[in-house]
Design a protein around this nucleic acid. Structure first.
Length: 429
RNA sequence: GCCGUCGUAGCUCAGUAGGUAGAGCGUCCGCCUGUUAAGCGGAAGGUCAACGGUUCGAGCCCGUUCGACGGCGCCA
């Protein structure tokens, strides 16, 4: 048994090969059947001629519809008439399990593809995305390992409910209420006092009713936190990590990227250092471009697109005004209106994929800020404790994996960056 | 939360001035030994999202509800 990828390499030309998979396309012309077979590695045409296969094979072969599971043996031959120039001339064609008429045909609507998601993930595009995502994760995991980061396992059920908790999913937790985690950051921060450099890959949950091509209610969050690391070093980690992830995708998923019309070379030319621009400079640039923004404006979808549309490499935007960012960030000593933080924007208009910052280390400053924004200190007692016992300069960030996949795979919508997207309107299938 | 679009056969859609529903693909049957969205002949398949209203008559006009999709805000 060979993979179709092996078959397509042509090394068995003129020799017997055997494959198994699913019918991708099929046409019958009386005494001959053309069935294109798909497995996880690719597609290849098989030809089944009456008389060349056992009689009991031919009827089922000509009747088997798209997605029927089959096992085929035959001689690998070159033929200009075959898609791709190679075909298997069957000596045996066994239908392992026929398929009912497949509901997804050449005419597809977004609604149908989402309703039949469990079947649509068999498509070549979705398979490619799945493999590219896996390659990116492998790249990340290896990079963290090589750089002495410890992979940790934070909880996804939490008790902390900020005042503005409309974005948290509430769950029944025995006799109490608890919440699904939006970020493992606080837990990672507590682990740096022992492990120093930690990272985690976890689901994050957002109950916001966002209806955009960039939001999921459940997404995979790649977060890192490290002691003795300032905001500049934090950005260096991000650019090295992102580069490693891109390199793994480009090296390991060449065919998959090309199927999605992403040139692997465009990923390979991205390398540290990434361009940096302060929030203030971003405002100037946007104003010069005709955007109606001023100091204190957040960078929305329109602004992010304007900043990155023509770019081919990622862009750091640093030092945001405090009012736009959370309380735990470290004040920028060079401009007390801002924090020592960075957002990483993907090129080609794809927008934010990472948010990171140096963290505040001073307990009393953090208490003041919590009071200012009207948060109850009780909820943050254990987090504030971390600043009392050997508080240490540290930084971290969170990467939205599906957002990065959306960019790398040139997807129009983030829901195609995950096999079973969870959005405001969809929890099924 | 706000703005917009759509809901007709299994799928993708058309339906012109309101007059009792159509195409392509798919399915089923027949023919076809080189197809590439194969071809040819035939057949089956629809409470026009739901409910209510106007009208002699509603897929079409009006209202309500439900569902989906697109965009914005919020964020990764």
């Amino acid at each position: 048994m060979q993979s179709i990828k092996q078959v397509l390499s042509g090394e068995s030309l003129g020799q017997p090969v055997s494959i198994r998979g699913w019918i991708y396309r099929t046409r019958s012309s009386g005494g001959i059947v053309f069935a294109v077979i798909r497995d996880s590695s690719g597609i290849v045409q098989t030809t089944v001629k009456k008389g060349d296969v056992p009689d009991e094979n031919f009827g089922p072969a000509s009747n088997a519809g798209i997605e029927s599971a089959v096992e085929v043996e035959g001689i690998l031959a070159e033929d200009d008439r075959a898609p791709g120039g190679l075909e298997i001339r069957a000596s045996s064609f066994k239908v392992v399990a026929p398929s009912e008429p497949f509901p997804i045909t050449e005419y597809q609507s977004t609604e149908l593809l989402l309703d039949k998601r469990h079947l649509w993930i068999r498509s070549r595009e979705q398979t490619a995305v799945t493999k590219i995502k896996a390659a990116m994760l492998r790249g990340a995991r290896e990079w963290f390992h090589e750089n002495d980061y410890v992979e940790v396992t934070p909880p996804m059920i939490t008790a902390v409910a900020p005042e503005d908790s409309t974005t948290l999913f509430q769950i029944k937790y025995f006799d109490r209420i608890a919440y699904l985690s939006q970020s493992a950051q606080f837990y990672l921060e507590s682990l740096i006092y022992s492990c120093e450099r930690v990272w985690a890959l976890t689901p994050s949950f957002r109950a916001e009713k966002s209806r955009t091509p960039r939001h999921l209610a459940e997404y995979w969050h790649l977060e890192m936190e490290a002691a003795w690391v300032n905001n500049d070093d934090n950005m260096k980690v991000q650019e090295e990590l992102v580069t490693a992830m891109l390199e793994h995708a480009a090296a390991g998923c060449r065919a998959e990227l090309q199927l999605l019309k992403r040139d692997p070379a465009s990923l390979r030319k991205i390398s540290p250092p990434f361009d940096r621009m302060s929030y203030a400079e971003a405002m100037d640039s946007l104003q010069a471009g005709g955007c109606e923004v001023s100091w204190g404006s957040d960078l929305g979808a329109v602004e992010e697109r304007a900043l990155t549309k023509e770019r081919e490499t990622p862009l750091f935007v640093v030092n945001y005004p405090k009012e736009l960012k959370p309380f735990y960030m470290k004040e920028n000593p060079e401009d007390s209106r801002t924090y020592k933080n960075s957002d990483l924007l993907a090129p080609e208009g794809y927008g934010e994929i990472i948010g990171g910052s140096e963290r505040e280390t001073d307990n009393s400053l953090m208490v003041d800020r919590l009071k200012e924004i009207g948060e109850s200190l009780e909820n943050y007692q254990w987090y504030l404790d971390l600043r009392k016992y050997g508080s240490v300069p540290h930084s971290g960030f969170g990467l939205g994996l599906e957002r990065m996949v959306t960019w790398v795979c040139r997807l129009e919508h983030i829901r195609d960056a995950t096999p079973f997207p969870r959005t405001v309107a969809r929890v099924y299938p």
